[in-house]
Amino acid sequence: MISHAVDQVSTFAKDIDVLILLICGLVGFWFFVAEGVLFFLVFKYRAKEGGKAAYIDGTDPKHTRFISWPHRLILLCDVVIVVAAVRVWVEVKQTMPTPDQTVRVVSQQWSWSFQHPGPDNKLDTADDIKTLDELHVVAGQTVQFELVSQDVIHSFSVPVFRLKQDAIPGRVIKGWFKTTQTGSYDIQCAEICGIGHGAMVGTIVIEQPERYAEWVAGHAPVAALATPAPK
């Protein structure tokens, strides 16, 4: 349902959408029940000629069951939501699958820049490819990112991945995603970070392995290519 509005391009995007719909469904159901009962009672017990208010002290189970039973059912719904949410949380945030590639995502006012591992697929070597605005990854691969901030708090948000991770100055925060299809998608900052926050955008380009290899070959530092890394 949500995927009609925003594509699902990571392996966990669907799990998060299901969770959002579950929460919307359960909370929405109780919202409409509660509002319905409220307006029904307001209407039923509206001021009438000769009507007299009854004094109810709230101790008679006959009266309290209208609160206690919905209360128990809602608690049950809470348990369902918590269990479902924790399962997704553990999958997305607490588990780190073995990555095919590691990239560094650098946030600063008000730009995204990226450090790709280059031909040797190792970060922090001479052949790393640094880019502004554009992150290139291979479709179907698991990508681990190291998120850093140069100045203030930012948030790395890729809506099609249903991924959002704060970047904190002084910390290296690791996370992952596994892409499911090719294409170019938006990266945005999801934490107010100054006057240019709204324009702090980037693009993630997800490519087939051959296209990615071509891009790497075309962008790797010339000096690094000329002298192959020692084995």
Binding site: Q109, W110, S111, L132, G196, G198
Partner: peptide, 18 residues
């Protein structure tokens, strides 16, 4: 303002693009 070491330029680039 599009050089990765030019943090002030990067800020100005984004603002100019608005």
């Amino acid at each position: 303002g599009a050089h990765l070491e030019d943090s002030a330029g990067l800020r100005m680039r984004t603002m100019a693009l608005t």
